[in-house]
């Protein structure tokens, strides 16, 4: 019990004094998670829309597979990217292994199914009369897609929030792809895992509090946007 209270005090101290290492780790975490959510949104919201707006054989199956991949274990993603990016892998020549870029790639793969799947359900949730109205008002196919996405924007934002939360909180892929290199690829989650195993409970707790606060702040911001 004492340990936890001491940890909390130490944690607050580290945060308030703007400990340079804590700041570094936090900023890198933010950079990686924001980069991956932006990339994922740009690619996979349109992908989800494409799947939703087109009829093709095996569509039902594809959606089932995407939904199954919501539960994709982070270590499996780590392993996959490890095989691709490691020096001996097919993409080894890119030199992304043990770099923040590699970690972003891992997070994108991890978040992609959630973003795609939730985008599809967001669009399916748009009322049929709304969709008819859009077409009836003279929209071209492309205009109709944009208008439907606009109508589903709150639900799509929920997909972004879910994706971001999964990205910022995962540890398996970040550890395997980034390697937890101090000052280079060490993020909040990998730092917590390491510091805890080394017995630096206070430091771990401080990082944990920061991680939760980040998730909280981003959620508040996105919720604000959603309620407008």
């Amino acid at each position: 019990m004492n340990e936890i209270i001491n940890g909390l005090i130490k944690a607050i101290e580290l945060i308030v004094t703007l400990d340079p290492e804590v700041i570094d780790i936090t900023l890198l975490t933010l950079r990686i998670s924001i980069a991956s959510i932006l990339i994922t949104s740009l690619i996979f919201i349109p992908t989800g829309s494409l799947i939703h707006f087109h009829e093709f054989r095996g569509k039902r199956w594809l959606i089932n597979i995407i939904q199954t991949l919501f539960a994709l274990p982070t270590v499996v993603v780590g392993l996959l990217v490890f095989l691709l990016l490691s020096r001996a892998g097919p993409l080894g020549f890119l030199g992304f292994f043990f770099t923040p870029t590699g970690m972003v790639i891992g997070q994108v793969i991890l978040i992609a199914p959630i973003m795609t799947g939730l985008t599809i359900s967001a669009l399916s949730g748009v009322d049929k009369t709304i969709r008819d109205t859009i077409v009836s008002l003279g929209a071209t196919e492309f205009q109709a897609i944009l208008a439907t996405i606009k109508e589903a924007r709150y639900a799509i934002l929920a997909a972004v929030i879910a994706g971001y939360s999964r990205g910022i909180s995962e540890v398996g892929a970040a550890m395997m792809i980034g390697g937890n290199i101090r000052g280079y690829t060490r993020v909040l989650t990998t730092a917590i895992a390491l510091e805890t195993s080394m017995g630096n409970i206070e430091f771990s707790l401080a990082l944990g509090i920061i991680l939760m606060s980040l998730a909280f702040v981003i959620n508040i911001i996105l919720n604000r946007v959603q309620q407008r």
């Binding site: 009322d127 008819d132 009836s136 003279g138 071209t140 208008a147 606009k150 709150y154």
Partner: peptide, 19 residues
Amino acid sequence: RRETRRKMSMLFQKPALFK
């Protein structure tokens, strides 16, 4: 179809206003 549709408008049973 689109050109012709643009000369018409339809009002449905539900108002179906956009959000």
